[in-house]
Design a protein around this nucleic acid. Structure first.
Length: 234
DNA sequence: AACAGTCCCAACCGCGAATGA
DNA sequence: CTCATTCGCGGTTGGGACTGT
């Protein structure tokens, strides 16, 4: 009986909700000394009344020194759209190609920004219509804007069109994370921007923030959807 | 100024996979 | 092989911040 009572007491002491600065410091200091991993025992040893899960999440999504904060840049938006079109909601896999960004952040971005547009257009975010809108309208537009915003820095915008995109040509067997990591788009001969260039720390590349929302009007998108529907019927 | 509605993000939850005893 | 524990992922939620009326 007493044991059950103690367990209950332990459970009662487990903290939830927002982390305090003191808890953050405990976690940072402990990991600096002992490294990460073994989260449950780490939590106990560090003197944190948190679940191992909670500690892991806090570290990976917030405290890690290489976390990048701030708006998602045009380049990053493009990478997210591109990789999501290939892999779907594989947030952690997508995050691996966006240094400093977490799966949680990308997931939040997708839900708040991209799904918002789908909602405005009254179509499902997973529908062919919406995917086509992304591929044929949003992504080419993003490329234009990336090219415009990077004219003054050493970035070689590639000739993007949905047809030469790996979105259109890739098969599941031919896509690999390595191909994305080394050269952002396919062919070795073509001078494409590399992922590093797409996601480096150059402030001129990363201060474009929220441009996504203002790229086109709902009317513009609706006209395009109507047009693509008519084309499908013909 | 006050309120309602919406947006955004940190954090939690459930589940399946991996690992170890 | 089995069971328990831990880890990692994707989905969901709570609440503060922001915006519009």
């Amino acid at each position: 009986m007493e044991e059950v009572g103690n367990e209950k007491k332990m459970e009662m002491e487990i903290r939830r909700g927002p982390w305090t600065a003191e808890e953050d410091m405990k976690l940072i200091n402990y990991i600096a000394l002992h490294g990460e991993g073994r989260w449950n025992s780490l939590s106990r040893s560090a003197g944190l009344n948190r679940t191992g899960k909670s500690c892991r999440l806090r570290w990976l999504n917030y405290l890690r020194p290489d976390i990048r904060r701030g708006d998602i840049s045009l380049q990053e938006q493009f990478v997210i759209l591109e990789l999501h079109s290939r892999w779907g909601n594989r947030w952690s896999k997508i995050a691996q190609h966006l240094p400093g960004r977490t799966d949680n952040e990308i997931k939040n971005y997708w839900r708040t920004r991209v799904q918002k547009h789908a909602k405005l257009l009254k179509c499902d975010v997973n529908s062919k219509q919406f995917k086509d809108t992304l591929k044929h309208l949003w992504m080419p537009r993003l490329v234009e804007r990336i090219a415009a915003s990077t004219q003054n820095v050493e970035f070689t915008p590639y000739d993007y069109s949905p047809e030469n995109s790996s979105v259109a040509t890739a098969t599941s067997s031919s896509t690999s994370s390595e191909s994305i990591g080394s050269s952002f788009y396919g062919g070795d001969q073509v001078e494409y921007g590399t992922l590093d260039q797409m996601t480096n720390n150059d402030s001129t590349l990363f201060n474009n923030g929220d441009a996504f929302d203002n790229m086109w009007s709902v009317d513009e998108l609706n006209i395009w959807l109507l047009h693509s529907n008519l084309c499908d019927l013909i």
